[in-house]
Amino acid sequence: MAVNTKIALVTGSSRGLGKNMAIAIAKKGIDVIITYNSKKEEADEVVKEIENLGQKAASLQLNVAESNTFDSFLENISLTLKNTFKTDKFDFLVNNAGIGIHNSFVGTTEAEFDQLTNIHFKGPFFLTQKALSIMNDGGGIINISSGLARFSFPGYAAYASMKGAIETLTKYQAKELGERQIRANVVAPGAIETDFGGGAVRDNEELNKTIAGVTALGRVGLPDDIGGVVAFLCTEDARWVNAQRIEVSGGMYL
């Protein structure tokens, strides 16, 4: 086992896109810490899958909506780094955890707005800020956005606004953390067949057809279309990619 194995922390990675990212990262020879909100058994299965690939892995509980828990979470990360990975710092942070709330601009409630803000903007903002103390110089931040920050699809005004905020934040992170050689980039998936947002894209045949029809490559995205792009950003091949928004949508709404 190489002494210099890198370590990535992927939030919300017990299922869906996050799981796919974590496994794709492990296939690059990088160890992975995954987080889950409530699905501990699913997280443990992902850990086993990563270990079967020959990499070290661990899972920890995290609700990114509760920023008051971040200090204790990072203490747990430090213990895990020491006990499982025999080190004191990690290299890559993938801010993936999220939920989808579908509601019109007019219908969005303040409670929904606050929930989306806490999960998609405040959470990643302060988790990243606090994690910097245990991140290695020369590592990277990958913030997960959405194609909805570029094109509009009715019902996602609040969600997409948070993703727009994350995209702006990413540029500031790249600029201000450059002195530590920490890169910051955005990966913005298009519509993907997962259980996200109640699984509408996967399960609603009419919606699936509609999205395929406005996508240059003629189909809806799959989780396997996304993970490898995030994994690439955790490799030396991506060392000169910084402050970029990489949309992975098959060419939606061109």
Results as ranks from 00 to 15, higher is better:
A212N: 10
M162C: 15
L254V: 11
N4V: 12
H102I: 14
L127H: 06
N20S: 15
C234L: 00
F232M: 05
M1H: 12
G190P: 08
N242S: 01
G199I: 00
S145W: 06
V3E: 14
R183P: 09
L132M: 11
L217D: 04
L127N: 05
Y159P: 09
I101R: 05
A22W: 07
T80P: 08
S78A: 14
A157W: 04
I25T: 08
A111P: 03
G213M: 05
K39F: 13
I25P: 06
T168K: 14
I144T: 04
G139E: 05
K175N: 11
K28Q: 14
K122H: 09
T210K: 15
D224E: 15
Y172P: 02
T5N: 14
S104N: 10
D224T: 13
H102A: 08
G138N: 02
N83W: 11
G18W: 05
T109F: 07
G213T: 05
G221W: 03
D31Y: 14
G250T: 02
T5I: 14
G155P: 08
K89D: 05
D31S: 15
L62M: 00
I134M: 13
F90T: 01
A22P: 09
I25D: 08
I226C: 05
T11W: 00
L254Y: 09
L177V: 10
G227R: 02
D31E: 15
L132S: 08
N103C: 14
E66I: 01
R150M: 12
R245V: 13
R15H: 10
S161A: 15
N143S: 07
R239C: 02
I77R: 10
I142L: 02
G100M: 05
K130I: 04
R202D: 12
I99V: 07
G107S: 14
L222I: 10
L53W: 08
G221Y: 04
V64N: 04
L127I: 07
N185A: 03
T194W: 02
L81D: 10
A111Y: 10
S78I: 11
D225I: 01
R202W: 13
N52Y: 01
A165K: 11
G250V: 03
I99Y: 00
L53M: 06
K40I: 13
A2S: 10
A111H: 12
V220G: 03
S145G: 10
N52V: 05
R15S: 15
K130H: 09
T11A: 01
L169E: 13
I77G: 08
S152E: 13
G199M: 07
K163V: 06
I50T: 13
S152I: 14
S145K: 03
L207T: 01
A131L: 09
A22Q: 09
I119R: 09
G107W: 11
Q129E: 13
A174R: 06
K175A: 15
T128W: 07
Y172V: 11
L53F: 02
Q129P: 04
M162D: 14
N95L: 00
T108M: 13
S152N: 13
V220N: 01
L132F: 11
E167L: 02
E110P: 08
V186Q: 02
